[in-house]
């Protein structure tokens, strides 16, 4: 018994020593992006500036609630969201301090808030991943309307309404097609037994890679993550961007974005971090490690992404036919979209 107590005391002392050694030069980042996908960028920032970043990765709903409850004394300095809807929602509740600088000015205005409250840091588009063992490329639907055909019943996997990217996608459809048509599409997919696996696209890409489903609705970079799996037998997948035909609707291209929290304790570090996120170094990391679309025009898209778009030598934002909506309108649609998803039982 004494040995046990001694051991635990020693361990405690270690723990305390580590806490007491906390540095003052810190930055607290709340990230709705997954830890693995944001950590490389954060460690590069730490190396370049010497600022110690404290990260809390979680789901955007929970993080947004925490931010809104701490408005007077925020613990977060920067919030990183997976899509513009969550950012706009926080902005409309007065959670962000606006910021603009030379660095942020280089990002196209389509990908940032008009009042400078948040800024896009990387782009991603919706797409379909398919398993080449189970379905031929020519048989994969090329438009959203074709996807709802009954012949694909039981073959499609997707995420449930807990996923922010899916909610943003439905919001975009509602803006573009209207509530009735959107509901019709969702209900058709539901009637075709679309499998709503979880709130994570990782589950969708893995299920398609393993051959449990022929197709999956994802963000494009999940295809590339699947393509780079360690086990070669899991890599036999392809990607199709919907509605790319001339005159087609196009795919929604959304952004992963960041904003500085109002009254942030480490405002200077936060500004430095935002500038860093849109700097060529960070943009290159997003493009190379995460296969996302760099928003800074000077940075090149990952060659694998361009190859999947059949557009070598260009940039992704030129090659993809983008659905024409204003992505900063998505936040206002959030509640209605969630109500629609609840109504069609997208769970």
């Amino acid at each position: 018994m004494k040995k046990w107590l001694l051991l635990i005391l020693v361990l405690l002392q270690f723990a305390c020593a580590r806490y007491c050694a906390a540095e003052d030069n810190t930055l607290v980042v709340f990230s709705a992006r997954k830890q693995p996908l944001i950590e490389p960028v954060i460690s590069l920032f730490e190396q370049q500036t010497g600022v110690k970043v404290v990260l809390k990765a979680g789901k955007s709903g929970a993080l947004a609630q925490q931010i809104l409850h701490e408005l007077t004394a925020p613990s977060a300095d920067v919030f990183i969201a997976k899509e513009s809807g969550a950012l706009e929602y926080l902005q409309s509740n007065g959670a962000f301090a606006s910021y603009s600088s030379e660095a942020t000015a280089k990002i196209p205005s389509y990908f940032k808030a008009q009042d400078g409250s948040w800024i896009g840091i990387s782009g991603r588009s919706r797409a379909i991943i398919y398993n080449k063992d189970l379905i031929d490329e020519s048989a994969v639907p090329k438009t959203l309307d074709a996807l709802t055909d009954t012949k694909y019943a039981g073959k499609i996997a997707a995420v449930n309404s807990g996923n922010e990217s899916l909610v943003a996608w439905v919001s975009a459809l509602r803006i573009k097609l209207g509530d009735e048509k959107t509901k019709d599409i969702l209900l058709k997919l539901k009637n075709n037994d679309i499998a709503l696996l979880s709130d994570s696209h990782t589950d969708v890409r893995k299920a398609v890679g393993r051959g449990e489903y022929a197709m999956g609705l994802i963000n494009h970079y999940y295809y590339h993550l699947q393509k780079n799996e360690t086990d070669p037998s899991l890599r036999n997948v392809g990607i199709v961007y919907l509605d790319q035909q001339p005159g087609g609707r196009g795919e929604i291209v959304n952004v992963c974005g960041a904003g500085i929290i109002k009254n942030a304790a480490n405002r200077r570090n936060a500004e430095q971090f935002i500038d860093f996120l849109v700097s060529p170094d960070a943009q290159k990391l997003f493009a190379e490690v995460n296969f996302e679309y760099p928003l800074l025009p000077a940075v090149e898209t990952h060659p694998e992404v361009l190859e999947s778009l059949n557009a070598p030598g260009t940039s992704a934002l030129e090659a993809v036919r983008i659905m024409e909506i204003e992505i900063d309108r998505l936040g206002a649609e959030l509640e209605k979209t969630r109500a629609l998803l609840e109504e069609v039982q997208w769970r």
């Binding site: 635990i8 361990l11 405690l12 270690f14 723990a15 305390c16 580590r18 830890q35 693995p36 996908l37 950590e39 490389p40 993550l225 780079n228 799996e229 360690t230 490690v289 995460n290």
Partner: peptide
């Protein structure tokens, strides 16, 4: 067989840190 994607490096330091966090809370 290191993954072809080096996106989330395993680190002893963070493992030890989280172990200590657990011990702290539990104690």
């Amino acid at each position: 067989a290191a993954s072809t994607l080096s996106i989330w490096a395993f680190s002893w330091d963070s493992l030890i840190q989280s172990g200590l966090n657990s011990v702290l809370i539990a104690t």
